[in-house]
Amino acid sequence: MLKIRNLHAKIEGKEILRGIDLDVKAGEIHAIMGPNGSGKSTLASVLAGNEAFEVVEGSVEFNGKDLLDLSPEDRAREGFFLSFQYPVEIPGVSMTNFMRTALNEQKKYRGEAALSASDFLKLMRDRKQLVDIDSDLTNRSVNEGFSGGEKKKNEIFQMAMLDPKLAILDETDSGLDIDALRIVANGVNKLRRPDNATILITHYQRLLDHIVPDFVHVLYKGKIVKSAGKELAYELEKNGYDWIKQEME
């Protein structure tokens, strides 16, 4: 589904990603861990098409398409989804209007008919239940005045609405209490299918207790320096990143 080869990216002349290779297949869950500042969010942003970052080398193939050649909106329409580490507040744009516009533009791209008003509302209700999001949050402006936890839940709600093929969740677990974490994890698990895939970016083992990854990767200074099964997460939880840093020096 996703094939990243030797990906290098810069911001303000500084090279942040320094040769990333990663393969994600349908049905898989990957976790990317790593110390702060190692480039995890940068990788997510580059994949989503944030123009602040400049790709200087490498390639990304997404379901046979050259991902880097697509606009951010076309990446989303092809089934790519990013749950933002810092969701943006947009006063004046209602959640409902936002989701209706997004969903219908995606449908149009795929040559499907727009949802009727009643089908759309039904879908909203259904997906709200899935992530247990407060009803009045969706009556408000996008993320405006939402608490940290509400913003994260809202990301998963959007994911549930848009039903992507590949989702990257950038620290969706941080700032969540245990109950919220369980709700978010449940949501992700319920959305899991053999034909979609998820990449979890996280600091903590605790999310991985709820969503069990097939692979764990360690990103350090812009490179994936270690990949293994879920046991790697336990090791990182127990021993921190120092031993990896030492191995690297």
Binding site: P72, A76, R77, I90, G92
Partner: peptide
């Protein structure tokens, strides 16, 4: 126009033109 808001909307599949309209309207609605 807020670049971050713009990217957020586009990352959900909304075209640049439509995102522009949403944000302009959001600005004016008050």
């Amino acid at each position: 126009l807020d670049e971050n808001a713009m990217f957020y909307l586009r990352a959900r599949g909304i075209s640049k033109e439509e995102a522009n309209i949403l944000l302009m309207y959001a600005f004016a609605y008050e």
